[in-house]
C-alpha cells in the first residue's frame, strides 16, 4: 500500500509546457512515475517529453485515464487549475505552485472538502512513495522504500529528515509536503488518518514549525486515534516573537504558537520529540523502539 499515490497512479502535469513544469515532468518520468500527459490551455495537440498535451483536464482524463495531477501553473491561475482537476474527476491533486493568493484558497478548500478530493499544497514539494511514484520536486535518490510515513510543512526540511532516516536504514512508505501557505488542502490530521490506516506504515515522523495551532491539533488527534509510534520536530525554537520566518504561518504572535507550547502538546500525546534538527531520524528510531 502506501498513501495517496503508488506504482499504479497515472499522472498528468498541468502547466507541462512551462519551463518548470517541463523540467519536473522529466524528473518524475526518470524516477519511474507513470506520467501519461499534460495540460496547457491552447497547447493541445503538442507533446512534451513524448507525452501528449491537452487543452483541458477533461480531455486528458478521457484520453489517458489519469487519476492524479501535478500543478505547476502560475499563482494567478492555480485556483482555477485545481478546480478544473476536481471537475474532471481527479481524486489526487498536488499543487506545487508558490505564491497563490490566500483568499483564492477559501473557495478551493470548500470544494475539495465537499468532493472528497485529496489536495496537497499549494506551495509544497509534493508527494513521493519511494521506488513507486514521485509527484513533485524532491530529489528522488535520497528516499528509500520502507515503513516510515513522513510529513512536513517545509520542503528542504523534509529532505533533511528523509536523508537522516535513509542513512539510519529506515525507509519511507510515503512522504508528503503539506505546504507553507495559510490554507492548504491537506492537514497533519488528514495524513495521520491515512498513515494510521495504511498497512505499510509502521511509524510516523512529523515536522512542524512555530505559529498557528496545527501541531497542537495534530497532537490531540494522535493522543486519541493513532496507535503507531510517532516522532516530531518543531522548527523555529529560537525564532523571536513577532517576526515572520518565511512561511506565512511561521510567526509567534501574542505569545501563541511558540515551540515550547507545541513541544509540550506533542509530548503529552506520547510523541517522541527530536532534540534538534539533527536528531529527527534518531527520534523516530527511539519512538519505534519505545512503541506506543
Amino acid at each position: 500500500m502506501s498513501i495517496l499515490i503508488n506504482k499504479d497512479t497515472r499522472v498528468i502535469c498541468q502547466g507541462i509546457t512551462g519551463k518548470v513544469g517541463m523540467f519536473h515532468t522529466k524528473g518524475c518520468l526518470e524516477y519511474g512515475t507513470q506520467m501519461v500527459g499534460g495540460v496547457t490551455p491552447g497547447k493541445g495537440g503538442t507533446t512534451v517529453e513524448g507525452l501528449p498535451v491537452f487543452d483541458t483536464v477533461a480531455e486528458a482524463v478521457e484520453q489517458t485515464g489519469c487519476d492524479a495531477t501535478m500543478i505547476f501553473v502560475p499563482p494567478a491561475f492555480t485556483a482555477d487549475a485545481i478546480l478544473e482537476a476536481v471537475d474532471a474527476g481527479l481524486k489526487t491533486v498536488i499543487a506545487i505552485t508558490e505564491g497563490v493568493p490566500a483568499l483564492d484558497m477559501v473557495y478551493v478548500y470548500e470544494v475539495v472538502k465537499r468532493t472528497g478530493v485529496n489536495l496537497v499544497g499549494p506551495n509544497c514539494p509534493g508527494v513521493i512513495t519511494p521506488e513507486e511514484c514521485k509527484i513533485g520536486i524532491m530529489p528522488g535518490y535520497i528516499h528509500k522504500k520502507g515503513p516510515v510515513g513522513v510529513m512536513s510543512r517545509s520542503g528542504t526540511l523534509t529532505y533533511e529528515a528523509v536523508w537522516q532516516l535513509s542513512n539510519l536504514g529506515l525507509g519511507q512508505s510515503t512522504c508528503v509536503g503539506l505546504g507553507g501557505d495559510p490554507i492548504v488542502g491537506t492537514s497533519f490530521i488528514d495524513l495521520f488518518k491515512m498513515y494510521q490506516a495504511d498497512d505499510d506504515t509502521e511509524a510516523i515522523l512529523m515536522m512542524g514549525e512555530i505559529g498557528g495551532t496545527a501541531e497542537e491539533e495534530a497532537a490531540a488527534f494522535v493522543k486519541q486515534h493513532v496507535t503507531k509510534p510517532v516522532a516530531a520536530f518543531i522548527a523555529g525554537r529560537t525564532a523571536p516573537p513577532g517576526k515572520r520566518m518565511g512561511h506565512a504561518g511561521a510567526i509567534i504572535s501574542g505569545g501563541k504558537g511558540t515551540a515550547t507550547e507545541k513541544v509540550a502538546a506533542l509530548e503529552d500525546a506520547g510523541i517522541e520529540v527530536a532534540n534538534g534538527p539533527a536528531d529527527m531520524g534518531a527520534a523516530l528510531q527511539r519512538a519505534m523502539k519505545r512503541g506506543r
Binding site: S152, R153, S154, G155, T156, L157, T158, Y159, E160, G180, M207, E209, I210, F233, A235, G236, R237, T238, A239, K243, M245, G246, H247, A250, N275, G276, P277, A278
Partner: peptide, 23 residues
C-alpha cells in the same frame, strides 16, 4: 534554502552554543 530548514539551522546553531545573526 527553504524556510523550514532555515529556521532549523538557526535552532541548531543555538543548540551548539552559538547565536544566529539572521534568518
Amino acid at each position: 534554502n527553504g524556510a523550514g530548514l532555515a529556521m532549523s539551522t538557526m535552532d541548531l546553531i543555538k543548540l551548539h552554543g552559538g547565536e544566529p545573526a539572521n534568518f
